[in-house]
Each structure stands twice: as structure tokens, then as C-alpha cells.
């Protein structure tokens, strides 16, 4: 037995990764209600902006590994609002220990959705760690995350939306998305402007 990653998983477009991220994220976001969304840097930020710009989107352009810790801080500060961390597989792996912090704090209003294309798609599609051996749902379970969901089919979309916005947290879902060429959709880049608009939407600052 070889310990090398399998040929199938190293293929550029594994057959299990077929969800198209832009329409997929847009459809999920139709169900968010007044939920707050925190994005990981890069593509998840572009996806959320493309799904429809809203002041209660807390976009990020940096800080790899901090999407879940930021969403945790927000969820603890706003216990009456649903908070979703929307991030990618590489960003999640860099902050993987934060799942243990989330499980320990156990906010029932926090959900995490990992858009998993098994690649570092922003930097040239280099192979990531979730394409061969790493099972993010199993990892999350091991950290003590209450429930997890693996999504590979379009037909699971409604169930995923209910899971993310209705199931008591902390919960984590992994959606196996395809590699895709999507048009650039870049939101506001000034973090202070993003945060100020966000805080105004929560009634924490005056317009």
C-alpha cells in the first residue's frame, strides 16, 4: 500500500466536486433571514458579494485562519442573531484549532460552511489537504462540534439551508464545490468602511 495521495483525489476535477460555487452560495443565502455572515478571505468573500451586497456581510480580505474565530466573537456578542462563517478549505485548515475553541464555547447561534474545492484556488489551484485524507466533518466531530453535514449534490441545498440557519449550533457543513472560473466580484476593500457599515446595520453606531 502506498501512502501517497490517491490518483483520483489528485485529479483536477474530482467527480465528487461538482457544485458551482456562485449559484450555490446565492441559493443558500436566500434563506439567511437576518443572519450575519462572516467570510474567509478570497473566493468566499467574492461569492458572498456576488450573491448580493448587504451591510450585515462582514467581508474579509486577509487574516487567513481567522474567519471562524471572528464569527465566534460575533456570535458570542450577538447571541440573538444567527452567525454564519463562510470560508474555504485552506482557510479552515489554517485555523483548524479554532473548531476546538468553538466547541468549548458552544454558541448555539454559530454555523460554519466550508466551500471545499480541495485546492488553493486563489493562488494557482495547488493541491490542498482535503482532497486526499483529511475529512473535515470527522475533524469537526472530533473537536466536539455538535453536528456536521457533507454536501455533494444540488438536491441537498434546501436541507443544507435548514441545517445552517435553523439547527442549534455550533454546527459545520462541508460543500464539495467544483473548480470554476468566476468573474471577479470584489466588495469594498477598506476594512474600516466594511466594519462601520456592519455596525450601523446592527444599531451599534450612528449612520
Amino acid at each position: 500500500m502506498s501512502n501517497a495521495p490517491s490518483k483520483a483525489s489528485a485529479a483536477l476535477n474530482p467527480t465528487s466536486n461538482k457544485l458551482q460555487r456562485r449559484p450555490f452560495v446565492a441559493d443558500i443565502m436566500k434563506h439567511r433571514g437576518n443572519g450575519l455572515v462572516v467570510t474567509g478571505l478570497g473566493s468566499p468573500t467574492w461569492d458572498l458579494f456576488a450573491a448580493g451586497d448587504r451591510p450585515d456581510n462582514l467581508y474579509s480580505w486577509g487574516g487567513m485562519g481567522l474567519a471562524v474565530p471572528t464569527a465566534l466573537g460575533l456570535a458570542l456578542a450577538q447571541p440573538d442573531r444567527r452567525v454564519l462563517a463562510l470560508t474555504g478549505d485552506g482557510e479552515m485548515m489554517m485555523g483548524i484549532g479554532s473548531l476546538g475553541v468553538v466547541a468549548d464555547q458552544a454558541p448555539n447561534n454559530l454555523a460554519i460552511l466550508v466551500l471545499d474545492n480541495e485546492r488553493f484556488s486563489e493562488t494557482g489551484r495547488q493541491r490542498g489537504l482535503t482532497g486526499s485524507r483529511v475529512d473535515l466533518c470527522a475533524v469537526a466531530k472530533g473537536f466536539g462540534i455538535r453536528e456536521t453535514m457533507l454536501v455533494t449534490e444540488e438536491s441537498q441545498k434546501d436541507a443544507l439551508a435548514r441545517f445552517l440557519f435553523e439547527t442549534p449550533g455550533p454546527i459545520l457543513a462541508v460543500a464539495k464545490i467544483a473548480l470554476s472560473e468566476d468573474p471577479w466580484r470584489l466588495p469594498e476593500k477598506d476594512g474600516a468602511a466594511i466594519a462601520r457599515r456592519f455596525k450601523i446595520s446592527l444599531g451599534l453606531e450612528k449612520p
Binding site: P69, L74, L76, Q78, G95, V101, L202
Partner: peptide
């Protein structure tokens, strides 16, 4: 008060930012 035990210190930069965005001091 709430004590948040981290797995590595840089997670704290995320938690305090999220707390501030949600109107709390950490």
C-alpha cells in the same frame, strides 16, 4: 465575564474583532 481558551494566540485577533463588530469589548 467570559474566558475563551484558545488553541493558538492569533485566534484572539479574530475573536476580539468579532466581539467589537458585535458591540462588545474583549
Amino acid at each position: 465575564m467570559r474566558l475563551v481558551t484558545l488553541s493558538t494566540e492569533e485566534e484572539g485577533m479574530g475573536v476580539v474583532t468579532g466581539q467589537w463588530a458585535g458591540g462588545k469589548r474583549a
